[in-house]
Design a protein around this nucleic acid. Sequence first.
DNA 1: TATTGTTATACTCTATAACTATA
DNA 2: TATAGTTATAGAGTATAACAATA
Lengths: 161, 161
Amino acid sequence: MVALSRSGTSQAERRPATSARQRIQLGTLNERVGYFVRRLQVWIFQDFIRTLKTAQIRPAQYSVLVLIGANPGLSQAELADALGIERARLVRLLDGLDGRGFTQRLRSTKDRRSHALFLTPAGRKMLDRLEVLVARHEQHVGERLGSARRTALIRLLRDFG
Amino acid sequence: MVALSRSGTSQAERRPATSARQRIQLGTLNERVGYFVRRLQVWIFQDFIRTLKTAQIRPAQYSVLVLIGANPGLSQAELADALGIERARLVRLLDGLDGRGFTQRLRSTKDRRSHALFLTPAGRKMLDRLEVLVARHEQHVGERLGSARRTALIRLLRDFG
DNA sequence: TATTGTTATACTCTATAACTATA
DNA sequence: TATAGTTATAGAGTATAACAATA
């Protein structure tokens, strides 16, 4: 690090090389919602993954557990549709969660093509534990964005789904 | 679509099977900023890719072209840092853009390790064309979110970077 | 015929580590 | 030694297409 206390130095001189980005112009990117939404999403996911490192659960896995917990017996097609992911992708996600004993696929009695999804007792317990960690993550987001802005943001986006 | 004008039908009856997702509970996902930000980001990128299909340019490629255009001569390390992507990833991105004749890597005279990045005339022309398509995309976002909400969102997130 | 879950493939993106050439 | 660009690899995520079982 470079000492900041010296006087009479130009901006360029008193700034370490790694902060040079502050001088870079965003140009028309400044008008692109997608750019800012993407930057925020990447930051949020990185913090989520870091904060839930001990549980070894990623955002997509968490959302699957929450939705099964809140809608026991729903099918894979319904779940994939609700989360906006491909049926094909959900298969692998559930393979992993099943393998760790958190979820269960039971063949539906009404339609023998489909599976009814449930949390196991271990899955429920895991989800309870996750919610504590996720609350901590959500607090990081609040610290980063400012609590008021976080609330404004979630209110703004909730209608979107 | 199912006619909505009939009376005396229950909610469940007048809803087609593919909209069953409307009945699914989001549970605690309702309080997670990351969930909504991710859903919006995916939607925005999908529309971006669709709208710029004819130009065969994806969001990351667009952001690279804009930043080089606004900061001619910057280095790969600076660019990667400004966009929050890995140096390693930028190499491949630039390989593609160089190969299509849009960008140029010149060895820096000051520090012979680094490259000074520039748009070629073809790259500048391409970028001008892209901005027209991106403006169209941005309008789609406005239609989807509501124009006022889009403005509020971009203002809210701009400070974040 | 259409849908559900599944398998398979290709590509994008993230995250790391290691190498080379320069500094 | 440290940094810039590069190569390589592994894993997550997206997008498709095709298949068997069932409707």
